[in-house]
């Protein structure tokens, strides 16, 4: 490998390592659950993306063949990271936040995280009045 190729791969690796470290450090350091959700789902995903780009460039430079595996992993991670973040945020809203503090939805229905509670309550009330 020539020097500029090594420097390019090394730069991607260093940036990726810093992002991965910062993401996991934020998970420990940030004050409340919603901000803690922010650090790993963005920074760590970016760190893994950097490692995968570095790996793609390394195999392109060292062995002269372009590999698509990394692109598949990157695509999969970048598609699933927002979905997991959304699910964890909903779980957090459901368990840790009082439902009176959540802003109104503007419709008859509650927020989706509270909908099962609401449906169960209505069902129990109807069952009690039916008897």
């Amino acid at each position: 490998m020539e020097l500029w190729q090594e420097v390019t791969v090394a730069a991607f690796l260093v940036v990726a390592g810093i992002f991965g470290f910062v993401g996991s450090f934020g998970l420990i350091k940030l004050p409340d659950p919603m901000t803690r959700l922010h650090a790993p789902t963005k920074a760590t995903t970016l760190g893994v993306g950097g490692v995968l780009i570095a790996s793609m460039l390394y195999f392109l430079f060292a062995q002269g063949q372009f590999s698509f595996h990394e692109l598949m992993i990157t695509l999969f991670l970048f598609l699933t990271a927002p979905i997991t973040a959304h699910f964890i945020a909903k779980a957090n809203l459901h368990t840790n936040v009082n439902r009176d503090r959540v802003s109104a939805t503007g419709t008859d229905r509650p927020w989706a995280g509270f909908e099962s509670d609401e449906a169960r309550r209505l069902h129990e009330e109807q069952g009690a009045s039916g008897k």
Binding site: L13, A16, G20, G23, S24, L27, P33, R36, L37, P40, T41, T44, T45, G47, V48, V51, L52, A54, S55, Y58, F59, A62, S67, H69, E70, I73, L77, A81, T84, I88, A91, N92, T95, N96
Partner: peptide
Amino acid sequence: GVPDRILALDTMVINFIAILVLYGIIEGTA
């Protein structure tokens, strides 16, 4: 809390993928 634990497990998975890919570069295999 439990959501924090799930988030930490998810981050562990992502970091482990990065370590596996780095090990692939070190060994030079795909």
